[in-house]
Design a protein around this nucleic acid. Sequence first.
DNA 1: GACGTATTTGACACGATGTCAAAAACATGC
DNA 2: GCATGTTTTTGACATCGTGTCAAATACGTC
Lengths: 199, 199
Amino acid sequence: MRPREFDHDDVLRIAFDQFWRKGVRGTSLSDIARDAGVQRGSLYNAFGSKEALFLQAYERYAGDYLVALQKALGAGSLRKRLTAFFDLTITNFRSGSPPRGCPTTRGLMELGATEGEGLDEDARRAFANLVSRITALVQDTLSAGAERGEFSGNPAVAALHIITVTRGLAVLERAFDDEPQLRKIAVHTIDLVLGKGAR
Amino acid sequence: MRPREFDHDDVLRIAFDQFWRKGVRGTSLSDIARDAGVQRGSLYNAFGSKEALFLQAYERYAGDYLVALQKALGAGSLRKRLTAFFDLTITNFRSGSPPRGCPTTRGLMELGATEGEGLDEDARRAFANLVSRITALVQDTLSAGAERGEFSGNPAVAALHIITVTRGLAVLERAFDDEPQLRKIAVHTIDLVLGKGAR
DNA sequence: GACGTATTTGACACGATGTCAAAAACATGC
DNA sequence: GCATGTTTTTGACATCGTGTCAAATACGTC
């Protein structure tokens, strides 16, 4: 059989970058094909469809991101861990050239928009899955913190609250493009969760 | 001069409904034209472009929504006001048929995605403007509450935190479709802000 | 060295946005 | 009452996007 003339992973990286910058619906397969030096038809042959290509590119990213988060949440006092978590979150959707933004949040709000199902539904599941796993990581961190007496509250509820704030930050980032503001909100959230508001 | 054969506001309503349900990029002017019983060309003549039409439809919605929010924030104890605020927020992006979601958040993440500027930038400004105005409303409510001794904290920061949570709720809504969870997060947020966490 | 299989390539169908000129419908002035 | 002028409507067109398909191609394999 004839061997493939392009690198699978290279294409996924290039595709994800384009999707991230211009949105899924705003990126054409012609764009990606041109950037990757591949024929459009080859992409269809290799990945099936535009959204299938996006899904694979996204899963790639999600895996890497989860690993980085796990690392950020893994050392130091509870406050340090949460600070590192928010830092990584904000850095993630502020890196690279604008308009970037959080890929997961972008995807969640942009896809899954069709009334029926289909691939959009698969994408929604992928996004939701990453959010779930991040929430679990935060919850575990809080539980461990509670055992060490650094936190007294409901880890499940607090983790949900924290994850909600990070998603909100992803939205505010696009509305205002004001990084100091985002960091202020993050610090304030940590204070509230750790009970510094209990003054 | 020849009179228009369709009602300007009717079209805006129909268009907004479609945009809301299927996303801006997922809705075609042909769809709207068919639904509204208007020729596609007439829409271009009357509104200029798809995104201009969306902008007008959105502004319409934003005005109505702001009025409703103002009402929700205007009566009762501070806790009651904030509860009404979160209720309205959640109800807003859970009303109607799926997949709905918060129009502003949907728009913010979907539009403003092009690297350059143009109409996307106008849309971004419109979204950001609504978020700003809502934040101001919440901040005023908190300030008033502080004067009555119902709140002791920085109204500006707390308002930002609250608005961040509402945007996060809009994202979680699409990820999980779990309304009780959203309401739980809302209650928890109010507790944190009002200092019930100060036990 | 011939064969089979997977990839590449280019043409095609279809639908979307946006433009334009010609046709149509009404208000206005004579 | 009728001609005029302005605006809307209408349909054709150009362009670009997705997705499909069959023919051509290039490589492992026997």
